[in-house]
Amino acid sequence: MNLELAYNSLPQLFTGLLVTLEITAAALLLGLALAVPLALLRVSRNPLAWMPVYGYIFYFRGTPLLVQLFLVYYGSGQFRVELESLGLWTYFREPYFCAILTLTLNTAAYTAEILRGGIQAVPHGEVEAARACGMSRGLLYRRIILPKAFRLALPAYSNEVVFLFQATSLVSIITLLDLTGVARVIVARSFAVYEIYITAGLLYLACTYLVLWVFRRVEHRLSAHLRPQEDELTRRARAPRLV
């Protein structure tokens, strides 16, 4: 075990981790922005609205991410002339752009499905009450359905965030130097296979559980009104907690 090498390559691995986090954050934000309208279309009763969205979600959830990544990064080469005439080739030539595009489309599909579950789990009585108060459809969604749906979808969404974070390791296959990519480069140079990969794995592990911890805190915050109220005695009796 060559611990010194693992220690010395930490700065490089951290730059890789930064790329990983950057791609994760970009794909998550764009994917969420895309997922909200998709989820709304998905719960629509109009077949022209929900059927194409259903097909999109089904395709992206039913095929491996690696195939999707290759389809965008290498597959776009087959339409180079068309893309050049549209002025889009400069983007599709970049692995960074292709990675974010693919991951965004992928996570949008999963997130839309999660949000659909949240929207459909909103109690019917609340919707009826809002209608009875005379809310319009737009107001109903903005004030009642979406906020509630987000909170109901949060546990499932935290899983999706973790999956996406780990899935970004695939971008190393299309030459990007994320955490896995950097680790592969160092291994190719030093042959210290397990030292480097285990160090990289520990970094992923730490980030994963950090994300899960943050989500648990947020869930706890958002469900304050659902917990039984503490009286003074139990609050005093409770031992101080570190986390």
């Binding site: 780990q166 390791s169 296979v193 285990i198």
Partner: peptide, 23 residues
Amino acid sequence: TTVVRGVPELLLILLIFYGTPTL
């Protein structure tokens, strides 16, 4: 379960395929 679910599959595949023989 904690370790396996916290590390990407690709990294584990690389670790096992290239790491085990070296080890």
